[in-house]
Amino acid sequence: MLKFLGRRIFMMLISAICITFVVFFLTNLAPNLEKVAKSEAGSRISDEEVASWLEKNGYTQPLLKRYGEWLGVAPGWTWSDENGVTTGRCIAPGSDPVTTPRYCGILQGNWGNSNVFKSPVSTVIGKRLSVTGVLMFWVMVTMVPISLLIGVMAGMREGSRTDRALSSFSIASTATPEYVSGVIMIVIFASSVTGLKWFKGTSASDVSDITFQNFFLPVATIALYGIGYIARMTRASMTEVMTAQYIRTARLKGVSFRNVVLKHALRNALIAPFTVIMLQFPWLLNGVVIVETLFNCKGFGWTLVQAAGNNDIQLLLGCSVIAVLVVLVTQLISDIGYVFLNPRIRIS
């Protein structure tokens, strides 16, 4: 088990390094850097000025070296101009170059500065993540029980009328992406067409202002898309379990249907959905970006769109680190959980 865990974590780190390197490469392509230079040093500067600005700010070093600096495994660049003033990656303006540390990257906790929000990336992301965290918490709290309940009810008696109805519902909900269900829900619950202004169509608010009215529609929109998929997986797993020999034995022994479902079937039927729920996180991330854009809710997804749209390299890198970590960690948890829940799986 320990060896398996070690190997998984090792692979996870390799993946994280590969993906962040790809993002780093893509965000640091020449046209992007030129845009940064123009936005920092004035939009009307000549090509020579762009080149010298890039050189002064350490952008002309080899890509791998800069990636190392950003990660914090290579010493930060320094630049001495003709007056003998030294600037550098790790040297804050006005501080003494001698006393500053040599390494400053993600690993040292230095995430760089955001151009759009004019503040350190770590504070921007921290603040926005808390909004998304609350959103995700409520999504999970509504989505998981509802979808498991639907899946178990549908899979309990395959082919029954309940099964048909619930399966149709789950198919319909997987066919409705967030930007469609969000639009429909805003039209029904928040616009003047139906006159039901129960909820607010936007939640452009801070963490302090989390109300049922603000958060109901975004949460419902994300949850709805996930419910269908998890419910279908749960149903598949439940129908499989219900045809197993031991269920028949229990039924023939005279155990009531209720007890068969609750005590015999449920435990085994819930192993597969656990993995599915965990692997659902990357999709939820997708949903979060769409929903936060649609409802103008200023969370992590909204920040990602702002960073990508405004060519804010450091912020975009920070966001991608978070996103990739979320995906990889949930994959790891789902692997471990699967082994933990299902003793039949032997991984040497």
Partner: peptide, 9 residues
């Protein structure tokens, strides 16, 4: 690796 990449990013 490609699957771990957030689609929107």
């Amino acid at each position: 690796l490609v699957l771990a990449f957030p689609v929107i990013l």
